[in-house]
Design a protein around this nucleic acid. Structure first.
Length: 408
RNA sequence: GGACAGGUGGGUGAGCGGUUAAAGCCAACAGACUGUAAAUCUGUCCCUCCUUGCGAGGUACGAAGGUUCGAAUCCUUCCCUGUCCA
């Protein structure tokens, strides 16, 4: 397949990038690639420990897909070796080495998830243990000799921690070097990552040069804010939307974001053009469009991307019922009354809701009941004891619902 | 190797012998208000038990011991972190 004209490719690729270093190098490289019909090798690295991708990752994956759209080759690198270090984000931990088994399992999970976006035909999945593991101590020393401590400490995160006296372990300094070595080993033309990866990506340029290779071009994508609109989306902060989450959950989480954040999501998670998004915003300001309606549209689009259009509609309907009208979800789970929840005098509601999973613990359940947060069959249940119950109880605690079958 | 300063609940961060399950803030959860959110206000925020009470127990302030009627608070040892000196 012939490549598209260089300038056309460039325009397509630049859309939505945070930064491109350097543009003229990419232009040259695209031209050279077209001449010999060699696709560019585009790498992005991923952590082996967190195989659950969320929308934050998809900003990058979508961009990687764009390279594939143009006929280039994407290398999905799983950092199983660098995973021992963990990207130094302030946590001074050496993670326990993962077994080959775990890594393979995670890789499989990745495979299932990333191919919802990437084209498997144009994707290579690699592990950096492939070349980092056989590296001898001598080679590690050589690698280290290529870079200075001062330059490593330029990294934001390091210099900050250094200044405030937080610990920085030596192995953490190795992370950027190892990542740079990956680029050399894979002969990358381009490396991608979030803007927070800029430092590491730049080190790769130096390392490649030192090893006699042409420096990679680096392309960074913006970091997606999480549901709170402030911190970056991450699993550990709990402000994420996982790409394998059920449609209803996805949809509800999207509806949870602020109106302001909605435009950002439109920008980074849909193919809508910037000018279209600006117009949407203007229409809302002018009172021509309802922000909620726009947000539901966003939710539909995202759910449809990872599930299907039907799922998206169903999720929107469910949201309408459950959140806007406060009705019971259509798919409330029904369980039998746990025997531990009944006593001679009746049903112990506190134990019941804890056992059935709508409260965290019996203590928590007691608090919720006293606070009037528990409804049974539509009536607020303030008493810990429920007598004369029969049939099926419809229990609601906040947004959690459960049906409980009572024998007799 | 030496001197000094630290290690508290999901996160910050007070407390430095009892009235402390441990202030304040953030997050979280629930309620009110909203036909999305946000904002705001209120309450809750270790676990178990029951006779549901400003109830009774059990765990908890890096780890293990010790001193005390009583320790997150004092002592000892150990582990971890930082700063300075070598």
């Amino acid at each position: 397949m012939p490549f598209a004209p260089v300038e056309e490719q460039l325009t397509y690729l630049k859309k939505g990038l945070a930064e491109l270093i350097r543009e003229d190098e990419l232009r040259e490289r695209l031209a050279a690639a077209a001449k010999v019909h060699r696709p560019l090798r585009v790498k992005a690295g991923f952590d082996p420990t967190a195989p659950d991708l969320h929308l934050g990752h998809t900003v990058l994956l979508r961009k990687m897909k764009h390279f594939q759209d143009l006929g280039h080759r994407v290398i999905f690198l799983i950092g199983d070796m660098t995973g021992l270090i963990g990207d130094p984000t302030g946590r001074n931990i050496t993670r326990p080495p993962m077994t080959r088994d775990e890594i393979n399992r995670n890789a499989e999970t990745y495979r299932q998830q990333v191919f919802r976006i990437l084209d498997p035909q144009k994707t290579e999945i690699r592990f950096n243990s492939e070349w980092l593991e056989p590296l001898t101590f001598e080679n590690v020393v050589r690698l280290c000799s290529k870079y200075t401590v001062a330059r490593l400490l330029e990294r934001d995160d390091f210099s900050k921690r250094f200044k405030e006296g937080s610990p920085i372990s030596v192995h953490e300094l190795l992370y950027p070097l190892a990542q740079g070595f990956d680029s050399f080993a894979l002969e990358c033309d381009v490396e991608m990552g979030g803007t927070d990866q800029k430092f590491n990506l730049l080190v790769g340029r130096e390392i490649q040069k030192d090893y006699g290779q042409v420096s990679q071009i680096i392309a960074t994508v913006p970091i997606l804010e999480g549901l709170d609109g402030v911190e970056k989306m991450s699993k550990s902060k709990g402000n994420y939307i996982g790409i394998t989450e059920p449609p209803k959950v996805m949809f509800r989480k999207i509806m949870q974001i602020s109106d302001e954040l909605m435009y950002r999501y439109y920008e980074l998670l849909t193919d809508l053009q910037m000018h279209e998004i600006t117009r949407l915003r203007e229409n809302v300001t002018a009172g021509l469009r309802d922000p909620m309606e726009l947000k539901m549209e966003l939710g539909r689009r995202i759910v449809a991307d990872f599930h299907s259009a039907e799922d998206a509609d169903a999720a929107a309907d469910a949201f309408d019922r459950e959140v806007r009208q406060g009705l019971e979800p259509a798919d409330t789970e029904t369980v039998d009354l746990p025997p531990q929840a009944s006593s001679e005098r009746g049903i112990r509601v506190d134990k019941l809701i804890a056992l059935v999973g709508v409260a965290d613990s019996v203590t928590d359940a007691t608090r919720k009941i006293k606070a009037g947060a528990v409804e049974i069959n539509g009536a607020v249940q303030k008493d810990l004891l429920l007598t004369g119950a029969r049939g099926t109880l419809v229990i609601r605690v906040g947004k959690k619902w459960k049906r409980v079958r009572v024998a007799g």
